[in-house]
């Protein structure tokens, strides 16, 4: 057990027109094997038309403990939403 295969994250586009979505992870020796394994593990029933794999260590994730300072500032900015603005009743579509 000296050489453990690294962990990869798998993203699958389920059909053209949709974005790639995180499907899960797996272990593989290299990117090529990760793609092949991803095909067998995550698309046995036509779940995808395109696969991305990226080694998990390359992903930088935000820390939920910082969620306050990261995401709360957006909460009081109601003026970023169309409903903040009043329109005369006569205007039907805008």
């Amino acid at each position: 057990m000296k050489n453990n295969w690294p962990l990869w994250e798998v993203f699958v586009r389920s059909k053209n027109g949709l974005e790639h979505r995180h499907f899960g992870s797996l272990h593989a020796a290299d990117a090529d094997m990760a793609l092949k394994n991803a095909r067998d593990v995550y698309t046995r029933r036509n779940e995808g038309v395109s696969i991305w794999v990226v080694e998990s260590k390359h992903i930088t994730a935000s820390n939920p403990e910082n969620n306050g300072e990261l995401f709360e500032p957006a909460q009081d900015k109601v003026y970023r939403h169309p409903t903040f603005y009043s329109l005369p009743d006569e205007v039907k579509h805008m």
Partner: peptide, 12 residues
Amino acid sequence: RDAAMAYAEKQE
């Protein structure tokens, strides 16, 4: 498993 890792390192 070891051979696959060795191959991957060599390619890299």
